Computed example of a mutant assay.
Amino acid sequence: MANALIALGGNVGDVRATFQRAIPEICRRAQATLTARSSDYITPPWGEEQQPAFVNACIAIETATAPHALLAILHDVERMSGRDRAQETRWGPRTLDLDLIAYDDLILDTPELTLPHPRLFERGFVLVPLAEIVPERRISGRRVDEALRAVSRDGIRPLPSVQ
């Protein structure tokens, strides 16, 4: 079994409800066990800044599904949640964005998938929830909690638990 880290984000519709549906669907399709789930965080938009704030979170799963197959599952779950990658603006509004952040210690660079995620260490909106669930995890030789110290946390705040 591999340990995979997945970042979730969105800013269209009821994003937290979308997360509530998407996480079990990812686990079902990937025959995975959810081992950790961060809090949800409200975060400022990144890239294209003229859009509503995002909600972001991270999960850790144990799965035997290979990385490319897992990525395909993530894209299917995005589509199921109303995302159409072909019709959207890069870094623009979306119902659900699922990024495979890391898969064990695998280093991979293919046209479809780069692991670890190439912009992980630039993104407070990923590192904050990731540090909540796996602070001591090393990715590319860097501890998540240490990497978080090098990025801005401005505008990132936890949301109250969903009951």
Rank of each mutant, 00 (worst) to 15 (best):
W46D: 10
L127A: 06
I42F: 06
W46F: 14
E112I: 08
R137L: 12
I59S: 02
T89G: 06
G92K: 04
E112H: 12
A32I: 05
E112N: 11
A64G: 14
R28N: 13
A64T: 15
E112F: 05
A69K: 12
E62W: 07
D14I: 09
P45W: 03
R21T: 14
I42R: 15
F54P: 00
P52N: 11
P93N: 09
L120E: 04
E132F: 03
Q20M: 11
A86I: 13
Q87I: 11
P111R: 09
R138E: 13
R94P: 02
L98V: 08
H75T: 10
V134C: 13
T18Y: 02
I23W: 00
C27R: 02
N11R: 01
E136P: 08
P129F: 00
L74A: 07
M80W: 14
P118Y: 04
I26R: 00
R137A: 14
F54E: 02
T89K: 14
V134W: 05
Y103K: 02
D109R: 13
P118L: 04
G47P: 02
D76K: 10
W46S: 10
T114H: 07
A102L: 06
G13H: 02
P45Q: 05
S140H: 12
C27D: 07
S140G: 15
A53D: 15
S39E: 10
R79W: 08
A32Q: 02
I101V: 15
R94Q: 09
R94W: 01
L100I: 08
R85E: 13
L100M: 10
F19G: 01
R21C: 12
P93C: 11
A53S: 14
M80R: 12
I73M: 04
R29D: 09
I73K: 00
R83Q: 10
I101Y: 00
G124T: 07
N56P: 03
L115C: 10
A72N: 09
A53L: 06
T35A: 07
P67L: 03
L108D: 12
A102T: 10
S39Q: 11
V126D: 01
T89A: 12
F54Q: 03
L8S: 07
E78C: 04
A66D: 12
P24W: 02
L113H: 05
R90I: 13
I61Y: 01
L34I: 09
T95V: 11
D105C: 10
P93G: 12
A66N: 08
L8P: 00
E25W: 03
T18W: 01
E122W: 02
I42Y: 06
L115D: 03
V134H: 08
R142P: 04
T18C: 11
R123Y: 03
R137Y: 09
S38R: 01
D84L: 12
T65A: 10
R29W: 04
P24T: 10
I59Q: 00
L34N: 05
I133E: 02
L106H: 06
D84R: 15
A7Y: 04
L34W: 05
L127P: 00
R138P: 06
R83P: 02
R123S: 08
P52T: 11
